[in-house]
Design a protein around this nucleic acid. Structure first.
Length: 350
DNA sequence: AAAGCGGGGTT
DNA sequence: AACCCAGCTTT
């Protein structure tokens, strides 16, 4: 046990702070409207929460507006082809989220009549909805009195209790301490604590004099509150190298194909590449042509750094039957991850 | 329990 | 250039 008998957080000043300092977000019902009995739309809250998994608010906003414009209800999203969803998700990353999002929409429509379940336990059985997201939806939409523990709260609680070990080693204890603090306004409390972590108790700075829970905070009494939460040592990122081949035909169309069903960037659109390995392999062109080297693209993933040599050529289409030829003007609408947009840009397209 | 899985905003 | 984000799923 790292937190013997932790004191609960006093929710009252947190809610009072939220009433006057809540962020204005496209998927959020303001605390004033919530007090009038206006409830959030579970579809919009769910969509925003999935987009926000490991992704910043700033990056999500435009995607959220685009999705809700194209597909205003869960019925619309469930009826859309997965392909269309992947195209709209392109650039946001973690593409398994988009596949699970579509599967979840289908499950809500086909198994729940288009109505989202109202308990965190039921929500968590749906694709792409785990411990955090189920709690967030249940609290925000239905005021279920449940602890909503995300990366912000890891930091806020790690500091509040001056947690002496990395969060991963005390997750259950933090959740229990938070659970003991949840008030009736559970949804506003969850959002308030996340806003607190995003604005006052930020990763590199803590503006403790403005913090509504400073009185009980242990870290603020120390010389350097931001040393919490303690971080585990990070492993070094390996480098992988390879070649990417941008081919055009006589019409100037570009050769594209779909990535495999599983693994990195699954089912997304790409141009052909070599394997990505630690030592740059000899170049093996996928078709004959006047190949030109177009420089290098560097792209950093979560668990490795990728360095691709970019080659382009006009080729005869014979033997290329796995993919398709796309007009350059149509590239914008393809399900191209950022990596391959960089590759096409290096080859003079896009 | 650990690994795999993107990309960009912020500092 | 490092850090880290409203985490989930698979192994």
């Amino acid at each position: 046990m790292h937190l013997p008998n932790p004191a609960p957080i006093d929710a009252a000043p947190v809610l009072a702070w939220y009433d006057s300092h809540a962020r204005n977000l496209p998927w959020r019902v303001s605390p004033a409207d919530r007090a009038k009995g206006i409830a959030p739309d579970p579809y919009r809250v769910w969509l925003s929460e999935v987009m926000l998994q490991q992704t910043t608010v700033a990056a999500v906003k435009t995607y959220f507006l685009r999705f809700t414009s194209l597909w205003p209800t869960v019925f619309d999203l469930a009826a859309a082809p997965l392909d269309a969803v992947l195209k709209e998700w392109a650039g946001l990353g973690y593409y398994a989220r988009a596949r699970n999002l579509h599967a979840c929409a289908e499950a809500v429509v086909n198994q729940h009549g288009g109505v989202f379940p109202t308990s965190s336990a039921a929500l968590q059985t749906l694709p792409g909805i785990g411990a955090y997201t189920s709690a967030a939806i249940a609290a925000i939409c239905f005021d279920e009195e449940i602890a909503v523990l995300d990366g912000n709260l890891d930091r806020v609680l790690g500091r509040y209790y001056a947690l002496p070990v990395p969060v991963r080693e005390a997750k259950d204890e933090l959740r229990a301490a938070l659970q003991a603090s949840v008030p009736k306004r559970a949804g506003d409390f969850a959002q308030a604590m996340m806003d607190l972590g995003a604005t006052i108790c930020a990763p590199r700075t803590a503006t403790c004099m403005l913090c509504p829970i400073q009185p009980g905070c242990i870290a603020t009494k120390t010389a350097a509150p931001t040393v919490y939460p303690l971080k585990p040592a990070k492993p070094e990122k390996p480098v992988r190298k390879g070649h990417a081949f941008v081919m055009t035909d006589a019409d100037g169309d570009v050769y594209l194909q779909t990535r495999p069903d599983k693994g990195l960037l699954a089912k997304m659109t790409e141009v052909p590449t070599s394997d990505w390995v630690s030592a740059l392999p000899p170049v093996a062109y996928p078709a004959s042509g006047d190949w030109r080297h177009r420089g290098q693209v560097i792209h950093v993933f979560t668990h490795f750094r990728l360095e691709l040599e970019i080659w382009s050529a006009a080729v005869a289409p014979a033997g290329l039957d796995r993919g398709w030829w796309a007009e350059p003007s149509a590239l914008k609408g393809e399900a191209l991850p950022t990596l391959f947009r960089k590759v096409l840009a290096a080859a003079g397209l896009e």
